[in-house]
Amino acid sequence: MTPLPRYLTAALALSLMAASAQADSTKNSLITAFSTITSLEDGWEPMEFPKIDRHSRYQLTDDNGEQVVMATTDNSASGLIARVSVEPGDSLILRWRWKVSNVYEQGNARKKEGDDYPARIYVAFEFEPDEAGFFERAKRKTVEVVFGEELPGNALNYIWANRLPVGEIVANPFTDTTMMVAVNSGTANTGEWVTVERDIVADYRKAFDREPPKLVGVAIMSDSDNTGASATAWYGDVSLVKPD
């Protein structure tokens, strides 16, 4: 048998190491992996918003032999959320990979009419009443009574932005309780799988200038209701791991 050239051997070794690392992170993850489920109801549930009737579509699909979630958005908005209850501690690692077909020409993280993303990871934290003002508490209570569920508090949104530079953090144009973190931006890498890893605790400290409360949910979301645009996104396994 003819031995493989050294560069092919090295490439194969790196590929196997990456696959092993991904398997380990999935195994220890606090979130159910998309690659292991038989239905989107296995560990995930729809995340929908008041007054938005047109929802994005999510379905399991195969991509080069691996099961992933394909999201289709067309002037629509909704997500899939995994409910958790996790004390962040000193470090909490969120890792995922995603791919998008395109970004939005009218997308702009600083403006309400541009607050759409072909792909985002939404990280929700427990509400802290002691940190909120009277009007914020009253508004939340009214919404909870009307819609019958407890609302989360602050949130981090990891976004595939159109123009916001990678690494920049800005307040959501609708509410300063949600901070937008650009982890990809523009057309670079569209149509390609991109792997992202973030320390949620470090990002929360930087975004809100205090320690994070309990983590209550992690969601995937592709939306286009403000821009009226359309896109397709693919989400691989999303893992949430506490370092040893």
Results as ranks from 00 to 15, higher is better:
E149G: 09
G79H: 03
A19G: 14
G236A: 06
G89F: 03
L94H: 07
W96K: 03
V196Y: 03
K242E: 01
R83E: 13
D244L: 02
G153K: 05
I93E: 09
Y7L: 13
S35E: 09
F125G: 07
R120K: 13
L92I: 11
M221K: 05
D115G: 03
N154I: 00
A124H: 01
Y7K: 07
V84Y: 04
V201G: 04
M1C: 13
S78W: 04
T232D: 12
Y117I: 02
D199T: 10
D24V: 15
D53F: 11
E41L: 06
W160Y: 09
Q106V: 05
E192F: 04
V68I: 14
F174R: 12
S101G: 15
S29F: 07
G153I: 09
A219F: 05
G43N: 07
R163Q: 14
V216K: 02
R137T: 09
D223I: 04
T9L: 10
S91Q: 12
A161S: 15
I220F: 03
G65F: 12
I37E: 08
F208V: 10
E197N: 07
Y104Q: 01
L60Q: 11
R97P: 12
I93A: 09
S101C: 04
T187C: 01
Y104C: 02
S76V: 08
S29Q: 11
A233R: 00
P152G: 08
R83W: 03
A231W: 05
S91G: 10
L80T: 09
A21Y: 01
F127A: 13
P5D: 10
R163W: 03
D116V: 08
A18D: 15
S230N: 10
V201E: 06
E126V: 09
W44V: 05
R205K: 15
L92N: 07
E144H: 10
A109I: 03
R57T: 15
M179C: 00
E131W: 07
R210T: 13
L12H: 06
E113A: 10
D203E: 14
V196K: 02
G228E: 06
D74K: 11
A33S: 15
D24M: 14
I81P: 00
N226F: 00
N162L: 04
G43E: 08
L92W: 07
N226T: 11
D53P: 06
P50E: 14
L4R: 15
N226D: 13
T72V: 14
T9N: 11
D42T: 13
N154K: 14
G148I: 05
M17S: 14
W98S: 05
P118C: 06
L94I: 12
L12C: 10
M180A: 00
A188I: 14
V194Y: 07
A23H: 08
G236M: 02
P46Y: 04
Y58K: 03
L60M: 12
N157Y: 09
P118T: 07
D176A: 04
V145P: 03
I200R: 01
S224E: 03
R210M: 06
K112Q: 15
W96T: 12
Y158W: 05
T9S: 12
R97T: 10
T142P: 02
W160F: 08
A188P: 02
V86R: 02
A207T: 13
G43L: 06
W234S: 00
F34R: 04
M179A: 04
L30D: 14
D237G: 00
V69W: 11
